[in-house]
Design a binder for these strands. Structure first.
Length: 280
DNA sequence: ACGCCCGCCTGTAAGC
DNA sequence: TGCTTACAGGCGGGCG
């Protein structure tokens, strides 16, 4: 499932592939993909004829800035992929829900079997209005918004909840999902159910460092492609970070640090993988 | 304020 | 073997 490292990998590749290209036409093949809009026609109208000037990211959301100040927002959900296609005659794979064709040639295709992803256009903000009101609820970005561990401690302490649910709370910090939450907590040596306001200063520093370093290393390795899902980059290539996983999807396997067995529990309807010996 | 559950959806896998 | 059920996941909404 694409989380921050996968979305950031796609963002970096998109910069070289679609910036300064002009959108010639947009085809919506599954209306659910643009459900925020009254119609597919209304969605298309805000894109066609406009050039893409920059690609940004907020948490797990990709942001394509257009030349009129509007932003095409793309959320990949659980199974969304973007495919950069050079030859428009290339057959469309199943679950291709939207196709953007560029004036300069080639296409960007949105493929999403589970249909939890979405595309929408956020209009250019009026004078004095904040941009992207749809994403105003998102918390800080762990790679873009660097802060002191003391500030992080203040934020952590202002909540009274389990560490994992807080890391996955997009209003607290944007971009971490079930997989990287488990990896971050392993790296920090902290259990998923530790209360956020119970950490020592040393533990807070370890958690902050682990969060930034785990995500940065995963970006370096171009994300994680697990067997049971199908994350692929713009060009259909897999990431490498799954080989570095310490906890996620390793139930019954030996902990790489202490050799005891990684266990799995269900918490809040989600699988959580951790080492009972290394994480306290 | 927080945990937990549901609904949304489809491919895969386990169970009978 | 073939049908049915469970499960995986993010997110928003509802409930206690």
């Amino acid at each position: 499932m694409p989380e921050l490292p996968e979305v950031e990998t796609i963002r970096r590749d998109l910069q070289g592939e679609v910036v300064n290209r002009k959108i010639k036409s947009v085809e919506v093949r599954n209306g659910r993909t643009v459900k925020r809009h009254a119609s597919a026609k209304a969605f298309r109208a805000q894109l066609e004829g406009h050039s893409i000037t920059a690609i940004n990211r907020a948490g797990k959301y990709l942001l394509m800035v257009l030349d009129d100040g509007a932003t095409l927002v793309i959320h990949l959900g659980l199974s969304g992929q973007l495919h950069r296609v050079k030859n428009v005659k290339e057959p469309k794979v199943p679950h291709t829900h939207a196709v953007i064709t560029f004036t300069q040639g080639g296409q960007l295709r949105f493929v999403d079997p589970k249909t939890f992803g979405e595309l929408f256009v956020s209009a250019a903000p009026a004078e004095g209005e904040p941009a992207l009101p749809e994403l105003a609820h998102l918390g800080f970005d762990p790679l873009e918004d660097i802060m002191s561990w003391e500030k992080f401690w203040v934020l952590l302490s202002s909540h009274e909840s389990g560490l994992k649910s807080l890391l996955m709370d997009q209003e607290f910090v944007a971009g971490i999902g079930n997989m990287y939450a488990d990896e971050i907590l392993f790296a920090a040596g902290l259990r998923y159910d530790r209360q956020s306001n119970s950490l020592s200063s040393q533990e807070v520093r370890r958690l902050y460092r682990s969060m930034v370093e785990t995500l940065a290393e995963a970006v370096k390795r171009r994300g994680s492609s697990m067997a049971d899902e199908q994350y692929r980059d713009l060009f259909g290539e897999e990431g490498d970070y799954q080989d570095q996983h310490q906890a996620y999807d390793r139930e019954g396997q030996a902990c790489r640090r202490c050799r005891s067995t990684i266990v799995r529990v269900r918490s809040g309807g989600r699988s959580t993988f951790f080492c009972e010996h290394c994480q306290v």
